[in-house]
Design a binder for these strands. Sequence first.
DNA 1: CTGTTAGCGCGTTCAG
DNA 2: CTGAACGCGCTAACAG
Lengths: 342, 342
Amino acid sequence: MTTIKDVARHAGVSTMTVSRVVNKTGYASGDTRARVEQAVAELGYVPNAVARHLRSKRTRTVALVLSDITNPFFTTIARGVEDVAAARNFAVMFCNTDESEVEENEHLQMLIERQIDGVLLVPSGSSPEPFRLLGSHNVPLVVLDRRVSSATMDEVRSDSEAGAYQLVRHLLELGHRRIAMLSGQRTISTAADRIAGYERALTEAGIPVDPALIRNDGFAVAAGRSAARHVLATRPRPTAIFAGNNFIAFGAIRAIRDLGLLVPEDVSLVCFDDVPDEWAIDPFMTCIVQDAYSMGRRAAELLLTRLTSDRPTKPRSIILPTKLVVRRSSAPPASIAAIVPS
Amino acid sequence: MTTIKDVARHAGVSTMTVSRVVNKTGYASGDTRARVEQAVAELGYVPNAVARHLRSKRTRTVALVLSDITNPFFTTIARGVEDVAAARNFAVMFCNTDESEVEENEHLQMLIERQIDGVLLVPSGSSPEPFRLLGSHNVPLVVLDRRVSSATMDEVRSDSEAGAYQLVRHLLELGHRRIAMLSGQRTISTAADRIAGYERALTEAGIPVDPALIRNDGFAVAAGRSAARHVLATRPRPTAIFAGNNFIAFGAIRAIRDLGLLVPEDVSLVCFDDVPDEWAIDPFMTCIVQDAYSMGRRAAELLLTRLTSDRPTKPRSIILPTKLVVRRSSAPPASIAAIVPS
DNA sequence: CTGTTAGCGCGTTCAG
DNA sequence: CTGAACGCGCTAACAG
C-alpha cells in the first residue's frame, strides 16, 4: 500500500505538499504540482480515508436505519437518499431493524462507534432511547416517515392524517357509511395517524366510529387478509374497506375473493400507497400516493446540509403532501348503485 | 468525546488495559476489569472505530455495488447481504451504478479510499477495469448475479442458461414452435445466457433460430412493451413469448393487451423471475424462480469467510439452481388446442 | 497480569 | 510557496 510518504519521497517534496496538491488546498507552484501529480499517477496512490477521518473527525458517511429494505416504499426512500449522498460524496450504510427496538439500538451503537456523521432513521418504536443515544454523542438525526412525540427534531414525512381523511371523504361522498379501517400497530405513528384521519372524516360526517371496524393487525399481506376477514364477518357488512397500506390492501383483496365478493361491486377498497408501476398491469386501486423518492431526497438533503453548513438552525419539519388517485376500486355502495344507476 | 485515555485515567490503569478489557483480549484481574468497566459506564465511553481501523487495517465494512436498489431482485439480494453482515458485525455500504461503468468506477474508487474490506459487485459492463482496480488494491471481490469472462474469481449467480433452456423446453413440449425471446442488452451476461439457453432448446428441437424473434431492448417494462410489439408484428405471429425477466414480462402483457390478445389463449407468456408475492393477487405467470435472498446470503458468507479466515483458498463459483413454476400463462398454442381439446 | 513504546496515515500549526 | 513536528485514538510488540 502506497502512502503519502511514498509519494512525497518519489516526488522529492514533503508530505504536506502532496497533501496540498491532492486535496487542492493551499498553494503549489506549477512545477511541484506537476511532479506530485506524476508521482501520484506512477505509484497509483490512493489517499487513505480512514486516516483522514481520524484527523478530520468527519467520515462523510451517513446511515439509513429502517425496518426492512425489502419493502418497496423504503427501497425507494433508500434510492433517494443514495442519489443525494453520492452527489455530495457521502457514503451510505444501511441497516434493517425489522421493527425491533433492540436491533435498532444495536445498529445505532455500532454506527456511533464508526463515527458516522449523521443518521436517517425510521424509528421502530416510540421509545426515546435512540434519540438519547444519538443525542449524547452529538450525531445529527433526521427522522423519516414517522412522527415522534419526544421532542422537536428534523423530520420528513407524509401527512398521513390528511391523506387518510381525504380517502375516507372520497368514500363518504360515494355514499358509503359503513367503512372498515385496517392498519398497522398503533405504536407506529403512520398507523395511528391514518386511523385518526379516518375517524375525523367519519365524525365530521356524523357517523359514529365503530371499534369493530378498526383493526391493527399489521402492515403486511397476511395481516391484511386476516383483518379483512374479520371486518367482513361483521353485520351489516362494511361496504368499503380502507387499507392502511398497499400490502394490507393486497391481503384484503384475497380475503374478499375468498368470500366470492367483487371489488367494487360488493366492497369498495382504497388504500394508502400505490402499487409500484411495474407490478400493475392495469392499475385499478383508488389510493393515496406518497412520494417516497422525494422523501428520501429531502431527508438526505436536510441532513447533509446540516452537516456541511456550520451555522446551526432550528429543527425543520418537512411534511410532504399526498395525492388522491381515484381509480376503479371505489364505487358507490351496491344499495345506492341499485337506486341511482349511473 | 471521551477517549480511551480518559477511561484509563479514571480507572487508574493504562490505556492498554482498557483496550484489553473493552475488546476482551488478553487477561485482566477481576478487580481491574471491574474498575475499567465501571469507568467505561460512568464516562459513557464508546470506542472510536476509525482509530481502531487505522491500526488494524480492517474496517469491518463491505460494499454492495449494484445497478439499482429499487429493483426488487437486487433489493432482496441486499437484504440477504445485510442479514449475514449484521450477524458478523460487519457494516454494509451500498451504491447504485445504473448500469454505468463510469459511476461504477467512481464508486469503487471511493470505496477503496475508505479502505473497505471487500466488495460485492453486480458488474455493469464487461470491461475488466473494476477487477483491475480492486485487484491492484488487494480488495477481495465477489461477483454477484452476472458472469464475467476476464478471469476466474469468486462468484455467486443463478444458472441462467439452464433456467432459460428449461423454460423453452416447457413451451416446446406444449407444442409451440414459434417462440419469441425478449431480453436485456447482450453485454449483460444474464441476458446473453438466457438467450443462449433459448437457442439451445430450439436447436435441439430442430427449430431454426429466427433473429427477428430475438430482441435485446432491455430489462425494463417499457423495453418489454416495445420489444413485444415488434415480435408480435412478425408473421406468422409467435405463439409464445419468453421474457428475460419479470419487468419485460409486464411490458409484454401490456403490448399483448394493446393488440386485444389474450394470455394464454392467443399468446403464451413465460419469464425469468417471479413476481413478488405481495403484488400477485392471483399468481398466473409461468416462470423460472431464482432465490435472490440466498444469492445475497451466499455471496456475503463467501466474502466474509474469506476476510475472516486467513488461509487463502481457490476462487469459488457458486451457481444456484433455479426452479420452474408452471402456472396459467402458458398453454398449448391455439392451433393445437383446437385440434386436441383438453 | 499490566505498562511502555511506537506508529498506523494523514493534516493542522507554525516556521521558514 | 514549502517543510518539520506533532497528534488524532487506538493497539501490536515487547517488557516487566
